[in-house]
Nucleic acid binder design. Structure first.
Lengths: 144, 144
DNA sequence: TAGGAAAAAGAGTTTTTTGTCTTTTATTTA
DNA sequence: TAAATAAAAGACAAAAAACTCTTTTTCCTA
């Protein structure tokens, strides 16, 4: 569904959201441990998300990644778009370059419905909305 | 969503279904032309599907790929499962190895709904059901 | 102001996916 | 039965994705 890069990105961002709500920054080591991802890989990924403004960071002692009030209201959809592009929201299910209402592939309409639901779901999924369940250990970011 | 291999596989199988309904076999050259795919690549893919019994083939002059009555009733779901495995139907949206009702990831329940719809849609999509629209040029397998 | 901590930057490696090419095997038909 | 046709088989190649390592920059604190 999503690339591995994107999966790590989402998990990391949800974790950073949790720490940010607690008023803390999250370091690479902590993040990679908590979401069970390769350390330098998630570093690379967050570097890129930071460059794009989806997450904030500071260097040096006490540095790390964090989200402000506005970024906490960001959605999973914006992460997915940023990392994987919007192929998943608008691409053809059968990989046709030109697939549209005018020239649909055989599963165009059925797929469109599912894609729209996916988009709706991910756009509604704000980073801030996951912290409580995580905190209460009702949901998880690794097998733990 | 699907791998390129899987996209080609579905397109090829839908085309073969169309030819089979017309009582004809489809050769690699014809298939690759009609679905706009690399010739030797789709050959490889069909070889594998043939090995798995999802499509029939014969060698030599007048040879090619075709589907019998039973295979024509096969679904896109079985092609997807055969090529990409069932990760798309049952895998975790965030890539967790262990993600279940007991230990769900933060988007487990929302994703489950979408995955189930996808499964339902693909299981209901029989190969035989696409030929008429294709024939009438209401749907397409390439940009044409 | 020096030492250490932590992210940024960027080059490099490995693995997987995608795609190609050549040879072999099976079938048909002249 | 020889020639032609078409898929099967398998080795190979290129591109993309996943992942690692080293150096640099920035910032904090003693």
């Amino acid at each position: 569904m999503f690339s591995k890069t994107c999966e790590y990105a989402i998990r990391a961002m949800i974790f950073i959201a949790k720490r940010s709500k607690a008023g803390e920054k999250a370091g690479i080591k902590e993040i990679s441990k908590e979401i069970d991802s390769p350390e330098s890989f998630i570093a690379k990924i967050l570097q890129e998300l930071s460059r794009k403004g989806l997450v904030l960071s500071t260097k040096g002692p006490n540095g790390g990644f964090f989200l402000d009030e506005k970024l906490l209201e960001g959605s999973l959809a914006s992460i997915v778009k940023s990392v994987d592009g919007d192929k998943i929201f608008s691409g053809c299910g059968l990989g046709l370059k030109q697939c549209s209402e005018a020239k649909p592939c055989p599963i165009h309409y059925q797929f469109k419905i599912i894609r729209e639901e996916m988009r709706h779901m991910l756009e509604g999924a704000k980073l801030s909305s996951f912290t409580e369940e995580l905190e209460n250990r009702l949901t998880f970011l690794k097998r733990d």
